[in-house]
Nucleic acid binder design. Structure first.
Length: 206
DNA sequence: AGTATGATGGACT
DNA sequence: GTCCATCATACTA
């Protein structure tokens, strides 16, 4: 029930942090201060300067990527496909621009708030919104949690968004595979840097 | 179940 | 002007 400390995010092994984030709780208080919470069930690691799929490949430093160079424990938000935000956890030391994309969470607290936000954002009222469709993707979970560009550069040690200990999954309950949507990244498109909880029905894809 | 496509706008060359 | 770390829908089967 308490925030993960700075040290968790500064670990040198980004892939290990991506695995360790599985089972942790992501918390964002809503407008009234009530916790909206989800258990992280799918992540993707982006390894900075060496990783052709990372925005920060080759230490590319622009207005957008600047946040990736901050200390581990910072939130990196970017806008994509004209419509969606993506929630990332910056990890590693200052100037080591690694980040972990949170691709899916399992709804835990305040599920009706998540459903209301997803419905409000949707065009047709008939869109099916079972729990499995609320946060099973990086764009969807940002809508459900009310995350937008204003969360960029927030600290995970502050009060706006943070991560807590949750459930621990042993290595045999964790699967890995190729990352999604980065076909342009040549040999890095093949790296098995996506991690998810085996048989969990809230991941974006098995 | 798979595959294709439109929506929609900011970042970057 | 082109490219996206996506999602929902509309096909084919």
């Amino acid at each position: 029930m308490s925030k993960l400390p700075r040290e968790f995010y500064i670990c040198e092994d980004t892939l290990q942090i991506a695995r360790d984030l599985l089972g942790k709780l992501m918390i964002v208080p809503d407008e009234r201060g009530a916790r909206v919470a989800g258990m992280i069930v799918e992540t993707e690691a982006y390894l900075g300067a060496e990783d052709k799929a990372a925005h920060s490949f080759g230490n590319r430093r622009t207005k957008r990527t600047e946040t990736m160079f901050a200390s581990g424990g910072t939130v990196y938000i970017f806008f994509i496909y004209g419509m969606y935000f993506q929630f990332n956890v910056v990890v590693g030391a200052v100037d080591t621009p690694h980040a972990i994309l949170i691709r899916a969470v399992e709804p835990i607290e305040n599920i009706e708030m998540m459903r209301a936000r997803r419905r409000a954002k949707s065009k047709n009222a008939a869109l099916k919104m079972p729990d499995q469709n609320l946060t099973s993707g990086p764009g969807k979970l940002c809508i459900a949690f009310g995350i937008d560009k204003s969360f960029n550069n927030e600290s995970l040690l502050g009060g706006r968004v943070w991560i807590e200990d949750g459930k621990v999954f042993s290595a045999d309950k964790i699967k890995c595979g190729k990352r999604v949507g980065i076909a342009y990244a040549e040999e890095f498109a093949e790296k098995p840097w996506r991690f998810w909880i085996k048989n969990n029905e809230f991941v974006s894809r098995g």
